[in-house]
Amino acid sequence: YDKVRGLDLGADDYIAKPFGMMELVARVKARLRAAGGEKDASVLSCGALKLDSRRHEVTAGGRPVALTLKEFTLLELLMRHPGVAFTREQLLERNWDYSYEGGTRTVDVHIQTLRGKLGDCAALIQTVRGVGYRLGG
């Protein structure tokens, strides 16, 4: 009864104790495959914007975009955490050496340059007033 009730309430699977680790791992892998969760983590995409960290390539609307190393790592950080609003200070810590003595305008300048290079995909980088930036869309 509990198994049927759990599945009726939305559970995707059920495993009874005692169970073997190989069975558990196999069930998790099967669920990830079914959910499309086993994707190449080196290729990120958001709308028409695609980033391949292994090949160090970015395309926006199908056209290649040449980025500096800082622009690339900044975009990669935002794309790995879509919807998360980062403060300028967090972006400075993560993308630049956190002992960097420059002001937070450095982030703003890099975001502006990055948006200019992304063309139509620039709108994916959103300004969060009073906070910083996030990738959305």
Rank of each mutant, 00 (worst) to 15 (best):
H56W: 05
G137Q: 06
L44E: 00
G102M: 08
G37A: 12
L124R: 06
A85C: 04
F19H: 06
K117C: 04
R63W: 09
L24Q: 11
L9E: 15
M79V: 07
L135W: 01
V43S: 00
T59V: 14
Q112Y: 10
L91C: 01
P82F: 09
A123H: 09
M79W: 09
V4H: 12
A60I: 13
T68I: 06
R115P: 05
T127V: 14
L75E: 08
G61Y: 11
S99A: 13
E71K: 11
S45M: 10
L114A: 03
I15C: 07
G132C: 03
R129V: 09
A35D: 11
G36L: 04
Y98R: 14
R88T: 07
G62Q: 12
T68S: 15
V128Q: 02
V65C: 02
G119P: 01
R80C: 12
F86D: 00
K29D: 14
K29G: 08
L69M: 05
A123G: 05
A11R: 09
R105I: 07
L114P: 01
V128W: 01
P82E: 08
C46Q: 12
S99H: 11
R80P: 05
E89D: 13
G62D: 09
A123Q: 09
K17R: 14
L124C: 05
T73Q: 13
G47I: 05
R129I: 10
L69V: 08
R63G: 11
L114Q: 03
M21W: 10
V84T: 13
E38W: 05
I15H: 07
G116L: 06
R63P: 04
R54C: 04
K50D: 01
Q112M: 09
Q90W: 04
V131G: 00
L91E: 00
A85L: 02
H56V: 10
D97Q: 12
M79T: 04
R129Y: 06
V84D: 10
D2V: 13
R115M: 10
Y14F: 15
H56C: 00
L92Q: 06
V4W: 06
A85H: 01
M79K: 03
L78N: 05
V43A: 01
R55C: 00
D108Y: 01
L118F: 08
L92R: 11
S42A: 15
L7C: 05
A11V: 11
R134S: 07
G119A: 05
T87Q: 04
L67C: 09
G20Q: 11
